[in-house]
Design a protein around this nucleic acid. Sequence first.
DNA 1: AAGGTTTTAAACAGGA
DNA 2: ATCCTGTTTAAAACCT
Length: 674
Amino acid sequence: MMQESGPETKSNGSAIQNGSSSGNHLLECGGLREGRSNGEAPAVDVGAADLAHAQQQQALQVARQLLLQQQQQQHVSGLKSPKRNDKQPALQVPVSVAMMTPQVITPQQMQQILQQQVLSPQQLQVLLQQQQALMLQQQLQEFYKKQQEQLQLQLLQQQHAGKQPKEQQQVATQQLAFQQQLLQMQQLQQQHVLSLQRQGLLTIQPGQPALPLQPLAQGMIPTELQQLWKEVTSAHTAEETTGNNHSSLDLTTTCVSSSAPSKTSLIMNPHASTNGQLSVHTPKRESLSHEEHSHSHPLYGHGVCKWPGCEAVCEDFQSFLKHLNSEHALDDRSTAQCRVQMQVVQQLELQLAKDKERLQAMMTHLHVKSTEPKAAPQPLNLVSSVTLSKSASEASPQSLPHTPTTPTAPITPVTQGPSVITTTSMHTVGPIRRRYSDKYNVPISSADIAQNQEFYKNAEVRPPFTYASLIRQAILESPEKQLTLNEIYNWFTRMFAYFRRNAATWKNAVRHNLSLHKCFVRVENVKGAVWTVDEVEFQKRRPQKISGNPSLIKNMQSSHAYCTPLNAALQASMADNSIPLYTTASMGNPALGNLASAIREELNGAMEHTNSNESDSSPGRSPMQAVHPVHVKEEPLDPEEAEGPLSLVTTANHSPDFDHDRDYEDEPVNEDME
DNA sequence: AAGGTTTTAAACAGGA
DNA sequence: ATCCTGTTTAAAACCT
């Protein structure tokens, strides 16, 4: 029965085969996504192939025309136009182009494209995103016009009327509000794109000009707008609105507002430094000098001071620092600007939440048949760190397009175009058997850490941990540090949605692992047999070591030396005590940040390694970057983050969702077969 | 590139 | 006979 499943997949159909094979390549290298998206012909009946092709061409033609129009408009407006567009199909048009061109596809045009159903879902999606971006752009421009008019009116009034303090304050207030709105709109667009990217929806391929965030932001604001901003800021300074009653916010600390941008950049930069799949950064950014990287400062970039409205050119970081201290010292003006920025950030966060919600609704709507509802709000890193293509085809080889929740390989049924939104974009993923070290490179938004437990509980995504690690975790979480096989099963199904299907497969794997690894000890009990963990053996099993940060490792080393002979429980608690160190350190690391098991594991691995071979901390491993103190410094540890990973442990045993003794039905491996 | 690890599949045995 | 548990082998993928 199961024997058949493997071969059957391979000989199943060309569509599926193509999908999964290209999907595998996809996993390996983001650059190939491009090729895949292009070359991928919709899986249609051979008889209809020509017709479909013609239709697709037609729709592509429409899309190209629209984009050409956009380009022309953009050219007229004097903006830089990427040159590759005309050569590339709609899918590959850089979003930045669309972002800067105030042209929206009419509903009719969109309808046309949609009705044809021949644009690949990716193409549709890009178009959709462009439309959203364009709407935003239009809003911005309208807003700009209105504000400009208002402002000029007010300036006139100010000149002619007597300068009464009240009016002055009013004007200043409005100017501030204006600044705020401008910034908000500007950042909203960035944020919007960013959010799309973080959802895994928007993928900028490495091969094409990536969306230049910074230039984009600047490009979106007409020069006069910036001029206006400067006027406003200077006017504001002149008037010295110390009282500033327009804002109810109390600027208790400047770090509040400054930490927000810094956080943003922290979120973005790691993304940029991954495999390029989700890269937001520009090629230009990539080519920044090492010095610049080492001096990364949220207020400094591209040799320019990024203080709102400043843009002073600073040749190097030192001069920037000087500039910062001299021009943006703690005074009323800076304080006011900070306050504004604070509000901007707040609004953006609100807006982002709304947009995310909207996106979720959109995807749910477009993806009725194959959406995993919980998948969208998940941290991006998780998606990228987890499995799929391959695993899905292995785990449920017959997974057909209609499979409701299986995050399958990019199978692209022509009749369900939109479903690919999730299968390809959301789950653009790594190979199934990635080990922890891989995930060191995967960035995470620290705020999402706490959600991961819920995520794995609800999203059918393969957890990036080995069976052995999971089994061990299950056992260690139990009060007695021992579990029956069935209880281990239950833990798996309780904690991971992924293990609620294909039970035969993973249960077999669990048993296999229990038997295979010496670290799992079977203990005869009155009621039967239970499984325990021999921690020493477990550590022997994994000589994988954490390199780098010797101090950190050494820190734990001493305690570990005493702990080694202790039983699993003691060691586990010891590891728990050390977790905050690693939690902070693993900020940029989704997989490690998620589960305490992984943290413990790494912890133990590191200590084991250090104990057995102190001088041999192999350098040059990217993983350690995530554990490096510099990150600790940049991302202050906040309680929520520190407790994120632990929450899995602490909440695991009282999950109301599942009945402990109720085993999930063994779903046949071929559940997806007709 | 080799060797170790992990996953998946499967055969088999013993007990309930 | 069937299911569960446990062991073992094998192959492939993955990782260092």
